[in-house]
Design a protein around this nucleic acid. Structure first.
Lengths: 226, 226
DNA sequence: GCACCACTGGAATCACGTTCCAAGCGCGCG
DNA sequence: CGCGCGCTTGGAACGTGATTCCAGTGGTGC
């Protein structure tokens, strides 16, 4: 972007030199440790023992930094896609990899939901699309199918991130779910028949399992000729 | 929240008095007109011809205000759910209503993707869940199915919002899509077989149609016994 | 030894969200 | 009919964040 000389040389000055990679790495550490709100240029500068100005020489702005961090995590999550016998099973494990990555780095969820056709989204779409190829779906439907799966994944990701943001770090999560479940139970059964009915399921459901159930639903739909 | 007297009386003082409703309305106007970044308490105060302090008497903080605005739009979009013969068709029109509402108010997309089991999400889940009841799906699967559809919708919503934010107000959107399509075409076909293959579809695809295709996919999956 | 340039650190700027506080206003009581 | 009180209001003040600016610094090639 900026910097990265027009002249060709690229001699590592100090070994501890600042670099885009080191900055992104530090950003990820901060995000993982203390959440999205903790990532400020001041904090980043402090952690890298430098000033914010120096960081701006390597990175255009905060949103680019976040995008880079996201791409990084997503790439790692998708890396080394072990192929399995069943292509459908491949899609499932792929989806779970992404789910787990986002579970481990909730801020990635927000970011995916925020940026449009960015690198990270592209990687996911490509990975899923590739696996879907072998389903024998007609080309046009293929694009729709891959998009649907990707959008579903991103949707879940966003919700997970929102939850994580709410209960930074802990398992007040369980308490929160119970609280919502109670709220649903207390709803007027006339006005909200569905929610009051499923309330008990909410309390003990497993996010990961439910996510996978959704993936299976979509896969089943893709298989169906419609 | 705050205010709203412990004592019971609630006599409308001036007719032009500030009120939570009027504030939310003004917020929506600003959001619709100039996007998420334009909604500041200063701008809001200016539009309402008052000070920011006065606003805080009616609304706890910005995120509550955004949530209220979102609930408002979603409620309107879901209102008067005309029932149709086919329950499946009902789900489709319901989904389209939400899609269109978000298309008209992109900031709602960001918001939905950002807040966890908030009122707005609840409304959507309930509406979809109700329609799904008549599918004869077993209860447990029903919750999963409704969640899947909801998450898919929210995922698409987030992407739409992201796009809208990028090309505030205009149709640089088309230009953007073409640009991405070119990027995909230029990708190494070895590394990205899928994207380079579907690139041409990207340029001319219709968001709304593709969204509906995804809904149909999931509906097909729900019908399938698996 | 010198001039240059990639790169650095931190101070300065500007816009926000939020908090504080000194009024303003109408009501009900005396 | 005026007074006091508590709900409301307007706007100033505060703290913090992103971003910009700028005065260096030190290594490189001459």
């Amino acid at each position: 972007m900026v910097g990265m000389a027009t002249t060709t040389r690229r001699t590592e000055r100090r070994t501890d030199a600042l670099s885009r990679a080191r900055i992104v790495e530090a950003a990820i550490e901060i995000l993982d440790a203390d959440g999205e709100s903790a990532l400020t240029f001041r904090a980043l500068a402090a952690r890298l023992a430098t000033g914010s100005g120096a960081i701006y020489w390597h990175v255009a702005n905060k949103s680019e930094l976040l995008a880079a961090a996201t791409d990084d995590v997503v790439a790692r999550a998708l890396g080394g896609a072990a192929s399995e016998a069943d292509p459908e099973q491949e899609v499932r494990t792929l989806a779970l990899r992404i789910f787990d990555a986002i579970d481990a780095h909730p801020w990635v969820g927000s970011q995916l939901a925020r940026e449009p056709l960015q690198l990270a989204m592209q990687q996911i779409l490509e990975a899923i699309g590739q696996r879907l190829e072998s389903f024998g779906t007609p080309d046009r439907a293929l694009f729709d199918a891959a998009s649907a799966l990707t959008n579903y994944i991103v949707g879940v990701a966003g919700q997970n991130a929102a939850n994580a943001r709410l209960h930074v770090h802990d398992e007040g999560r369980t308490a929160f779910l119970e609280q919502v479940a109670t709220r649903w139970t207390d709803l007027d059964a006339e006005q909200h028949p569905f929610l009051s009915k499923v309330a008990p399921q909410l309390a003990d459901h497993d996010d990961r399992e439910q996510f996978l159930a959704g993936v299976d639903l979509i896969l089943a739909g893709i298989r169906t000729p419609h």
